[in-house]
Amino acid sequence: MLTEIKQQFYKETLQELKNISSDLSAQVIESDKKSLLVDRIFSVSHQLSGTGPMLGFDMSSKISRKLEKTFYEIRSGEKEVSLQLLWQTKRTIDSIIDCITEENQTQVPQQ
């Protein structure tokens, strides 16, 4: 059962991370899409840093906590989104993708 939940969580999170990474690759991000993107990044990082440790994704949730903190500040208006910040977010999301994939491979026996 736990394995199923874990796999479901892994698949959904990975897919969303990949989608966000791809959206962040766009040369220009329209302003209305930008706020939606900020919400999505916060949401996935919040989910990963909260649920991740329970399911054994320790390192990826640790990294995502940084994203969560920064995007919490952005959502509450304490911080502004710069292009540089989005670029660094993409770098971090890409490293979370690598990390969560590796964690999943080492924890779930291949069927």
């Binding site: 990294i63 940084k66 994203l67 920064t70 540089q84 910040l85 660094q88 977010t89 770098r91 971090t92």
Partner: peptide, 8 residues
């Protein structure tokens, strides 16, 4: 902009 490079 410089600080944002090191944000994470």
């Amino acid at each position: 902009e410089i600080k944002d490079v090191f944000i994470f």
